[in-house]
Design a protein around this nucleic acid. Structure first.
Lengths: 336, 336
DNA sequence: ACAAATTATGGAAACAGTACCAAAACAATA
DNA sequence: TATTGTTTTGGTACTGTTTCCATAATTTGT
């Protein structure tokens, strides 16, 4: 692989002149420019951006750490990030944390050593000390959807609390009284917020905190499966379930199918963030959808802005509205 | 951000000694090692891997260019790649080509200038001259699923021809005679192969090439929508449709729903690569599933092997078997 | 006791590009 | 003609780390 000196030699100029041709900076006569361009194409020269990155301490790369790109919600977020990065001339390092704090830390350290300019992260837990590490290195961070206890970080997130309230309220309005929330991990801020919204709606409807029916678990289909198995054993049996994400909902449906319980005739179901409509054969879930693509796009642009210079500007906490859609998975409870 | 010299100074040693401590190479006395480790933690020192990358011409990064991570099939492939990369200590640059040759080229050039060690690519078209560019730079490539006309490149792919044959054969066995294939782009090798399999089955059943019913389009829901609109106008109307991927199938379902045509009573449907089962509420499509995760995992490992040294070994063309599952979207044609 | 091997440490150079400074050639102005 | 400004080109230094080589210091072998 030729370097800038090889090109310079072939064109009979100094390396710096080649640099000027490539980057279109400074003065270069037409004659030299032509000779340089010829040499570049003769040698199939591709400039090496590692050198400049070392000097300028800017790599134009960003680390993207998500829990699992297999989940269509995050896929769409990633897609938004990617589009924004493409437009802004940044490149993405894709990392899957699998909700593991250990893997998260490992990735962050590796990304730091690769000199990424900034981070887009979905933190696995609310306690997030890796973050300190990043900030000590003077790198920018923007959180995706989930916040952490240290609040001094930019974040772009969905309105989990509001969505929790809305879904619960919808079921209450249908006259449900026994509503179980099949929630995500206690350590995910989104799950905490969803529970908050649920509680607010329940309290407003005159239920005390004691009648809370919250099951903490994970954002997986398996978790949804076991959570609904458990919820169905409660007496009185819940007449409505709220699934804290799309995967949990899928686990729920499997269980209800097994038990021969019809949705919504026997039991109602409302869901957070849903599958993207285009993946759904026949849209069915009453759901509160988060604007996944916008979340990714906005978060990335927030990061790039920070990297562009305005480090001083105030902390951002962008909360995106959800879209509530009533479909056929919710109805009034069966008459007793 | 401190560098290795800062650490060395603080520990009262030479930079090279710090390097030895970090990488656990060569001889270092316990005393110095301890002093160095202290200095590292005092300064929050994170080694910069850009320097060594420049010297060694190995960045331990790989460019991953896919058409669209929004498609669950590719998402799963990417996930397989990511897992393999994590294990092998590589980092991934994620790029979305959107099936555009232009974007593809742009990304490849950028990735080259970032000194990636190799490429994992889903080529947008069968003609792929960007590839030459890569090979001229002496970088390794492994293709994902789709081959290109120049066959001198490693590839890991699904058995598109076999799956095409199997799906068609299944419908023929059910006594369908008018079977339309709603296919992907003419320039995608997978679509070409799927058509081949379809033809082979049709010919075997005694149909001449003239009775071919192939509609070329794109691997999108929209394309599936318009393709099925067209196919339904043919006389005799097809009694069965084959969708060349999951998105096309979703477009088909939308149209059939609109027309009030029941699946499979009025018309049968068989599908390539399907949605991952875990995303399907109630699995429904008779389908030929490609092993997406394995494809990504194997392709990545093939690349890492090449990067590990055995450049000389012979060309690989790994064809993965599909999984054929009969579900409720296919049945005998309605009696006339 | 002396040579040889082992352990321990450091200096210089190299990777690729560009920012900064220097310097020449030429044109325009006083 | 002298001065100033503009255009054009190049030399040097710097980024962070490690490979290669050199040089001690210490231990082992005979």
């Amino acid at each position: 692989m030729p370097n800038i000196r090889d090109v310079a030699q072939r064109a009979g100029v100094a390396p710096i002149t080649v640099s000027r041709v490539i980057n279109d900076t400074g003065y270069v006569s037409d004659e030299l420019r032509q000779r340089v361009e010829q040499a570049i194409s003769d040698l199939n020269y591709v400039p090496n951006r590692l050198g400049p990155s070392m000097r300028s301490k800017r790599s134009n790369t960003v680390g993207l750490v998500v829990a699992d790109i297999t989940n269509p919600f995050w896929t769409t977020v990633v897609r938004g990030v990617e589009d924004a990065a493409y437009k802004a001339g940044y490149h993405l390092f894709l990392c899957n944390s699998d909700e593991s704090v250990y893997k998260e830390r490992e990735y962050v350290e590796l990304l730091l050593s690769r000199q990424v300019d900034g981070f887009l992260i979905v933190p696995a837990e609310t306690q997030f000390d890796v973050l300190e590490l990043i900030q000590k290195q003077g790198k920018a961070i923007v959180l995706l959807d989930r916040y952490v206890s240290t609040r001094s970080i930019d974040i772009v997130r969905g309105d989990s609390e509001g969505a929790g309230y809305q879904l619960t309220r919808h079921l209450l309005d249908l006259q449900h009284r026994d509503i179980a929330l099949l929630n995500g991990p206690r350590l995910a801020s989104t799950a905490v917020e969803r529970a908050k919204g649920y509680r607010r709606a329940m309290n407003e409807a005159g239920f005390s905190d004691k009648s809370e029916r919250i099951l903490w678990g994970e954002y997986t289909q398996e978790s949804g499966y076991y959570q609904s198995l458990e919820a169905l054993q409660w007496r009185p049996r819940p007449t409505a379930l709220i699934a804290a994400n799309n995967f949990i909902a899928l686990g729920v449906v499997r269980v209800l199918d097994n038990f021969g319980l019809r949705i919504p005739q026997d039991i109602s179901l409302a869901v957070f963030d849903d599958l993207p409509v285009e993946l759904n054969l026949r849209p069915f879930f009453t759901s509160a959808d988060q604007p996944a693509y916008e979340m990714g796009f906005l978060a990335a642009n927030t990061l790039f802005e920070r990297l562009g210079g305005n480090r001083s500007s105030e902390l951002k906490d962008i909360v995106l509205p959800f879209k509530f859609t009533v479909r056929s998975s919710s109805a009034p409870p069966p008459s007793p």
